[in-house]
């Protein structure tokens, strides 16, 4: 019946071309060969577009030469691990090992993520489950910082951290500003601003409101029936929180942590602003340094190897958690 009706109605060329049926199941019909080949051509062109920069950097990273090839090379013609070895051995001109850089990056991304999560979860629970007077106003307070891009609060955080210094004074005294100061000149031995914990604190400043908001959104979706049943059985709110809600929220806690990890792993603006000692540098700062000021003298294969190393953990986590992350990102993006 429908087959007879088809020729009279000329369907849209695009619709016909794509054989539009979005159910995802294969019906009885097969795609005609000419159409299949045309579609394959299109998908291949798109795949080339995607693979072009990736293959370019992969090829560079496996090259043993430090210069870029003078003609385009997208397929490695040698598999030299020289660049990787050099990067792992001595990533920069400074006497800093790769392990140190990795540790700094890991300290910031894991530390900030964990602290934000642990502190945020109880607040998220309060917002999600309790009715109390100041709820509305406190929620707006948490929301306001989300509107601000991270760089927006960099100045006050920079100055705040910079005022926490430990100074060795002329005598044997030690002055801790802003509480005490030296009488004369002194040597600054510790500046919170110029230290990894200082950067971590500044990063938590932005991560915490986000974690509260994100977790609250998830806790809202956990059905309340379980808790009501527990309440009838005589559980108090604290027990409900630790015995029922927390275990149910573990997947989302993990997703929030990894979302944070992906962001903090690439964090560049704050460390680059705060830190000045090469031994405090993170992987992303090192990568920026490699292509930054002395771009003409850079060993390109090492830069490419570094790029691959920085990208790897994020790519692995992303692929493993893909399903959760897309939903989480969009929900978070709409809210803030």
């Amino acid at each position: 019946m429908t087959a007879q009706a088809q020729p009279e109605k000329r369907p849209n060329i695009i619709v016909r071309f794509f054989n539009m049926n979005t159910s995802g199941e294969l019906g009885g019909r097969k795609l005609p060969l000419w159409r299949q080949l045309l579609l394959q051509l299109m998908t291949l062109i798109i795949a080339f577009e995607v693979m072009f920069p990736i293959m370019y950097v992969v090829t560079l990273s496996f090259s043993s030469k430090t210069t870029r090839p003078s003609t385009l090379q997208l397929i490695p013609n040698e598999f030299s691990l020289e660049a990787y070895k050099q990067v792992l051995d001595r990533p920069t001109a400074n006497p800093v090992t790769f392990v140190q850089l990795l540790r700094n990056s890991a300290f910031l991304s894991v530390g900030v993520g964990l602290v934000a999560l642990l502190v945020a979860v109880s607040a998220a629970y309060a917002f999600s489950r309790f009715k109390f007077k100041a709820r509305q106003i406190l929620m707006i307070l948490v929301f306001i910082p989300l509107l601000m891009p991270v760089i927006g609060t960099a100045t006050p955080l920079f100055l705040m951290m910079n005022s926490f210094r430990v100074t060795e004074c002329a005598g044997d005294d030690i002055a801790i500003s802003p509480f005490t100061t030296c009488d004369g000149q002194g040597k600054v031995v510790f500046n919170l601003r110029d230290s990894l914990p200082g950067v971590g604190i500044a990063m938590i400043s932005g991560a915490l409101p986000f974690a509260v908001w994100n977790l609250k959104g998830y806790l809202d979706t956990i059905p309340k029936e379980l808790e009501e049943a527990a309440m009838i059985d005589g559980a108090d709110p604290n027990q409900i929180f630790t015995k029922i809600v927390l275990p149910l929220a573990v997947p989302q806690l993990a997703v929030t942590f990894f979302l944070g990890f992906i962001g903090h792993w690439q964090e560049f603006a704050l460390p680059w602003l705060f830190l000045s000692q090469p031994e405090d540098y993170t992987l992303s700062m090192t990568m920026y340094n490699m292509v930054g000021q002395y771009a003409n003298a850079i060993p390109w294969n090492r830069f490419a190897a570094m790029a691959m190393i920085v990208a790897l953990p994020v790519a692995v986590i992303y692929i493993a958690l893909q399903k959760y992350i897309v939903g989480g990102l969009v929900a978070g993006g709409v809210k803030g």
Partner: peptide
């Protein structure tokens, strides 16, 4: 009480800087 830890930290490193 549930909100206290988060707000204590945020008031020092988020709200005060603003």
């Amino acid at each position: 009480l549930y909100l206290f830890p988060a707000f204590l930290i945020m008031s020092v490193i988020t709200f005060y800087p603003l």
